[in-house]
Design a protein around this nucleic acid. Structure first.
Lengths: 170, 170
DNA sequence: TTGGAAAGTCAACAAGACTGACATAAAATC
DNA sequence: GATTTTATGTCAGTCTTGTTGACTTTCCAA
C-alpha cells in the first residue's frame, strides 16, 4: 500500500509507478471487500429466501420511488425477463406496488409498500453499519480516496446513474 | 464526498459524522464500481463460455501454485462441490493440472498449465489495465485511502487470506 | 485393526442470469 | 385511420454457480 512510489513531474502532476503485485493486491482487496460488503444483507435475505437480485431491486425502488421498469432495467443492467421474475415475486409478496403510469399508461410506476420499506431498512441498516465502521476506522482522507477510486473504476455509462441521486431518468 | 465533516476531539482522534445519504452513496459506489471491475474479464470469459467462478479459481491457483482444493475452498468461500465442478472443467479443458499430493495422497496439488497461465494473463491484464487507469486518475493519496477502506470492509477471517500473499495456508 | 475424520467426487436441485418468441396495450407517426 | 414503435409482461429453454446429500479413498489415532 505504501510502496507505491510517486514522482513529481514538471508542473504539479504526479505519476504513480505501479507494479503488477500492487495492482494484484488492489484486485484482491476489491474481491474480498465486496464479499464483506454483501455478507450482512445476504444473511438477512436468506431468512426470507430472497437473493441479492431482490436486494438490488428493493434498494433502487427505495432510492427512486415511482421509477419505471425500464429505468430499473438500465440501472441494474439485467434483462427484463430476469428482473420480471424478481419483481413478480416482490409484488405478490406485497413488498412492491406497481401502478399504471398516469401520463403514459404503458409504464408502470414502482414503489415500496410499508413492509417493503421495512425490509429495505433492515438491509440498508446492516450495510450502513459496516460501511460506517470501515469509514470510521479508515478516517476521512481515506474515505475521500476510496470514493474517488471507485468512481474512476465505474463504466462511463454507469457513472451517469451514480451521479443522478434523486431521479433515475437521464 | 467532501461534505463529510470531521471534528477534532481531545487528543488527536477524529470522528466522522456520516449522514445516511453519504453512506448510501458509498454503498452505490461499491455496487457500480464492482460491476466495472468485473466487466472486462467477464467479456473475455464469455467468449470461452466460462464464468466468474472460473476466473476466481484461475486467479488463486496462479497466485498460489500447488495449492490444495481445501485451501482454495477457504479462500473462495464456496462449497467443495461447487468448486469441484469448476475445477473439473478447467482440468478437462487442459487449463489446470491436478496432481495427487506427495505426503498426503488425499490432497490434490493444483497448478495452471501453459494455456491456463495464458488465460490468466489475458484476464489479469484486462483487470489491471482498469485498476491502473483508475489509480492514475485518482492519485496516490486516493489509492492509499481506497486500500485502507477496502481492508476495513473485509470480514476478519477473510482478511487473513488477503494478508497472506504467497502461501494460502494459514 | 478398526473406526472416524478429512479430501475429494458424483448426482440432483434451485436461483438467477441469459436468449428468443410472442402478446397486449398505449403512444407516436405517417 | 392505419401502421409502427415503445413499454411491459410472459413462456420456454439454456447456462453458470450456488446448495445438500451420499459416496470413495486415504490417513490417523484410539
Amino acid at each position: 500500500m505504501n510502496d507505491a512510489r510517486t514522482v513529481e513531474i514538471a508542473g504539479n502532476e504526479n505519476l504513480l509507478f505501479l507494479t503488477d503485485e500492487q495492482l494484484r493486491k488492489g484486485i484482491e482487496a476489491m474481491f474480498f471487500a465486496y464479499r464483506g460488503f454483501t455478507a450482512d444483507p445476504d444473511k438477512i435475505l436468506d431468512d426470507q429466501k430472497y437473493g441479492r437480485a431482490h436486494h438490488r431491486a428493493v434498494h433502487f425502488i427505495h432510492r427512486t420511488p415511482g421509477t419505471t421498469v425500464n429505468n430499473l432495467l438500465s440501472v441494474l443492467g439485467v434483462t427484463k425477463q430476469s428482473l420480471n421474475r424478481v419483481l413478480r415475486r416482490l409484488i405478490s409478496d406485497g413488498l412492491v406496488e406497481s401502478k399504471v403510469g398516469t401520463q403514459d399508461k404503458r409504464e408502470r410506476n414502482l414503489q415500496l409498500t410499508v413492509s417493503g420499506e421495512s425490509l429495505e431498512q433492515k438491509l440498508s441498516n446492516a450495510q450502513r453499519r459496516r460501511m460506517r465502521t470501515a469509514y470510521r476506522a479508515a478516517g476521512p482522507e481515506a474515505v475521500a480516496g476510496f470514493r474517488k477510486v471507485l468512481e474512476e473504476m465505474m463504466d462511463r455509462d454507469l457513472r451517469r446513474h451514480f451521479n443522478a441521486p434523486k431521479e433515475g431518468r437521464e
